[in-house]
Amino acid sequence: MSDDETRSLLLVFRHSPYGEGLARAGVDLALACGAFEHPVSLLFAGAGVLQLCPRQDGNSLGLKDIGKQLASLPLYDIESVYFDAEAGTRYGVSPQDSPVPAEPLDAQALQRLLREHRQIISL
């Protein structure tokens, strides 16, 4: 394992974008990791895949638009972005529409992703 991998952090996003505050807190944390150049990977799982929905309009709720924030991740060199393919199917979210490029993972690949990170924050 390289030093980067041993320090690496996986953020697992499990909440829908506007139902509660944790989605927002998670995106803020991802952007902070980018700003501090701390290696981080993101996994959208369960209802969290809804954060990848295209044409979000958080502003109409008086909230920051999560989709727009996610779209800025590559500017922070955060490119290891994945989603649970099964949840994507269940929630009707397809990768080509996502505000940020994200790679679908099957159950086996998910297990591998979880195993290869030193720390996981699920929120």
């Binding site: 944390l29 902070a32 501090f36």
Partner: peptide, 14 residues
């Protein structure tokens, strides 16, 4: 949030 990132880097378990 930098304090959380620092905690992650400095700790064996989070």
């Amino acid at each position: 949030l930098g304090q959380l990132i620092d905690a992650s880097a400095a700790s064996d378990r989070l």
